[in-house]
Amino acid sequence: MTLYIDAGTTYSKIIADGEKLDFLPVKNENGFLYYIIPSSEVRFLDLKFKKSCGHMFSDENSENEIIALAQGCKKDIEPDSVVLDLGSRDAKWIRFKNGKFRDMDWNTSCASSTGATVEMLLKFYDLKTEDLKFNPEKYNVTCGIFGFEKIMDDISKGVNASDAVSKFVHGIAFNAWNFAKRPEKIYLSGGFCNNECFVKSLENYCDVVKLGRFKLCEGLIDG
């Protein structure tokens, strides 16, 4: 069995070529089985990976995440494209022109406006992702910690927690669009593809094509 892993901060995305793991796959495509497993559990599975990327797993076969993203998405995008991967703890984007790499950036220092923060907010206010709805208003979340303050202020004034967190998510979408240099269209990769509030918020600024959560992992196979 050949295994590939994108070991994110919260979840690991695993693709198995052939045999099944003791988990329910989320997808079965072209002979490959796709799994999403909490990263905290992966270390106990005693699995050997042919290639890996991500913050939570590192060995001699580890690949750079930007390289994995570039390799994984190239078959799904137009020659002139911007791909944004927004995960638990960081955001990264690549711009292609005529099918070739042109520009990139990777926010590597501050994770206060990414997926892990949203997950914490959902837990803190006992909300589900589905409770969040696009809100045309947004908080300025250039600093996520200041964004927290806005949420708490609004809730203390009677705003629903789901509305307040939705405004926070809108702020993250606005930041992500600016971070990617305000493109007209974004190919979105990562866990935020499953957050409709985020996707709708991003669509407020540009067209969005969802690539799902496995592009980095697929890039390990293609690379």
């Binding site: 990139m104 990777w106 590597t108 220092s109």
Partner: peptide, 16 residues
Amino acid sequence: ATNSVRAKIEAFLRLS
């Protein structure tokens, strides 16, 4: 430099 900054530079050099 953190490992992430190093990875960012490495990616730029490999993709350019």
